[in-house]
Design a protein around this nucleic acid. Structure first.
Length: 556
RNA sequence: GAGGCUGUAGCUCAGUAGGUAGAGCAACGGACUUUUAAUCCGUAGGUCGAGGGUUCGAGUCCCUCCAGCCUCACCA
């Protein structure tokens, strides 16, 4: 379809925008011959055809069916076409971001009016802006628009006498939410507001559906997520938060580059979902008739690259876990994993601090941020506490006191039968210690038996060289001195698999990874950071859904 | 998976004891050439999330279901 259109017309720019399943509306055809489109004869024809389009049932959405509002807007659309304007606009060059236009206020000068009155009038620069109409105040033969783009808002004044009848007729077709271009002089109104005094208007895009309340916007959290585009436009701070997210991600890439790391892209379809203990999503590859899993972690392929001599490597990408949804969990989320040859978990602690501090700086924040009423101080070095020490402190039980640990777990109502003491200890830790870690705090040296990918401490095989960074009870980062002993790795995989329940039996031994280790992986430090949670902390978001543009929702 | 809360006009929200479904904004018609969520006059707009039940009568009470939010559970 695309190719045929491309060949059939000398204006491929328009053809590529057409959806294959859509029939060509008369207007889209006219896009290819804009000069002819101005002819009244053709306009008349379009008017009739567009009437037919009106009869098409609108798609029901979460926002309901705007019904009469759409009809009113389609009337204006038809009028636009009759006047010879393209309701869907086109290229609009040489306009300036509204934020920049506002900065030109200083260029406005006062000059003599040039008449006998001796009064002064303002003379300002000619500016050209494009944006969406957020507010319209009609005052007789004057209209004030609030025009907004992604850099700010500005008022536009359209006067019937000033722009002339043609543009006035165009302005009468404006609805809230339409996208228009304006050109005119930047001056102040009588009340002193910086305003573009329109001289020319360009119609850029019709909005067929009514927009949310100009003052209240959207408040229903479901609508905010399903109609994120409206949320971005109408909810205070949403766009700003996502912009901060991109600043943070960009800053992370810069920090990694500064430290000599190379970014790679590993596979997201895995034959074996490894590197974490989570249930994967299953999918099917028809070509090979095999089931595959969406990756639950980046770890095992990045470590293969360590074997391959890529000494500092990272990936910043999406992972997928088929588990619960909560204010802190989304089925797909963004992880940073980094591996540094010849480092260890202390190396990774320094890197973590550098990453967090640089991200704060990139978002223009100091070392202290408030989150949910708490003040978080990210001034390095972050606190470093050992797992055992924290365990004893918060439970009153010595970590090597097996009976004490079990008794403590039972008091909490935890299931203990048939579980390894370290597993029970870990559950007690999650229950009693983690929620109280206001942080930021590095928790060091975990029980080895719950860390199957981690190197043991020299001379203390029961302790793994691992840290997790906690802030406000949330796990933000997880890092190891990486296990590079292939025999021990294979044994730990086997032990881990033996303990799995039936529903987790999709997990399998990753022989290929163990084979890679047999060729020799350099000693290394490895780090994982949950980017969404980090962004939550650095933007004051209480829910992960506030930092993910399109969080998973049940389909409508 | 369990419990709690929510669902009323395009949006934001009221809705009394179970007795004809309301407001603001938006829309439509009109007035207004310096407005600021403009103002003023007028008009239209509803399967009260869906289905069932109780009742003379249900937005309101009961049941089931759907969706969302929160808490818990699950989650190395």
């Amino acid at each position: 379809m695309h190719l045929r259109l491309w060949a059939a017309t000398s204006a491929p720019l328009f053809a590529v925008h057409l959806q294959p399943h859509l029939t060509l509306t008369p207007f889209q055809v006219s896009l290819e011959c804009p000069v002819a489109a101005r002819s009244p004869h053709r306009d008349g024809g379009r008017g009739i055809r567009l009437m037919n389009q009106t009869a098409r049932t609108p798609q029901p959405g979460a926002a309901g069916q705007p019904g009469m509002h759409e009809a009113a807007r389609r009337d204006k659309l038809r009028k636009l076409v009759e006047l010879g304007y393209d309701p869907w606009g086109g290229r609009f060059d040489n306009h300036q971001p509204i934020g920049q236009i506002r900065q030109r206020e200083g260029e406005i000068q006062r000059v003599p009016a040039g008449d006998v009155s001796g009064q002064e009038i303002e003379q300002g620069p000619r500016v050209r802006a494009a944006g969406r109409i957020f507010l319209q105040r009609k005052a007789g033969k004057l209209v004030f628009l609030d025009l907004r783009d992604w850099t700010g808002r500005i008022q536009v004044l359209i006067g019937r006498r000033q722009v002339g009848e043609e543009y006035w007729a165009l302005a009468e077709c404006f609805d809230l939410g339409d996208i228009v271009g304006v050109e005119g002089e930047l001056k102040h109104t009588n009340t002193g507001e910086l305003t573009i005094f329109a001289e020319r208007l360009v119609f850029l895009t019709k909005s067929l559906w009514p927009h949310p309340d100009k003052h209240h916007g959207l408040t229903d959290p479901e609508l905010r997520q399903r109609l994120r585009y409206l949320d971005l436009l109408y909810t205070e701070g949403v766009w700003e938060r996502f912009r901060r997210r991109t600043q943070i991600v960009h800053s992370i890439r810069q920090t990694m580059a500064r430290n000599g790391f190379v970014e790679v892209e590993g596979p997201t379809l895995h034959a074996i979902a490894g590197g974490a203990a989570a249930r994967p999503f299953v999918t099917h590859l028809n070509a090979l008739d095999i089931d595959l899993y969406l990756r639950i972690a980046l770890e095992l392929h990045l470590k293969r690259l360590l074997v391959g001599g890529i000494e500092r490597v990272y990936e910043l990408g999406r992972v997928y876990r088929n588990e619960g949804i909560s204010p802190r969990h989304n089925p797909e989320f963004t992880m940073l994993e980094a591996y540094q040859a010849y480092g260890d978990y202390h190396t990774m602690m320094d890197l973590t601090e550098e990453l967090v501090c640089a991200a704060l700086e990139a978002t223009g924040q100091g070392r202290q941020v408030t989150w949910g009423g708490a003040v978080l101080d990210f001034t390095p070095p972050f606190a470093r506490r050992s797992y055992d020490e924290l365990f004893a402190e918060h439970t009153g039980v010595r970590p090597d006191d097996e009976h004490g640990v079990r008794a403590c777990a039972e008091r909490l109502g935890l299931e203990t039968a048939g579980k390894h003491t370290d597993v029970i200890k870990s559950e007690v830790f999650e229950e009693l210690v983690e929620p109280r870690l206001a942080g930021p705090v590095f928790v060091l040296d975990y029980p080895a038996s719950i860390c199957p990918l981690t190197k043991r401490k020299r001379g203390r095989p029961e302790v793994a060289e691992r840290f997790e960074l906690f802030v406000q009870g949330m796990e933000i980062a997880n890092a190891y001195t990486e296990l590079n002993d292939p025999d021990l790795q294979e044994e730990l995989f086997r032990t881990q698999l033996a303990g799995l329940k039936e529903e987790d039996s999709m997990a399998r031994m990753d022989h290929d990874f163990v084979r890679a280790l047999r060729y020799g992986m350099p000693p290394a430090g490895g780090l994982g950071i949950g980017i969404d949670r980090l962004v939550m902390l650095l933007t004051g978001a209480q829910s992960i859904r506030e930092v993910i543009l399109f969080p998973l929702l049940r389909p409508e």
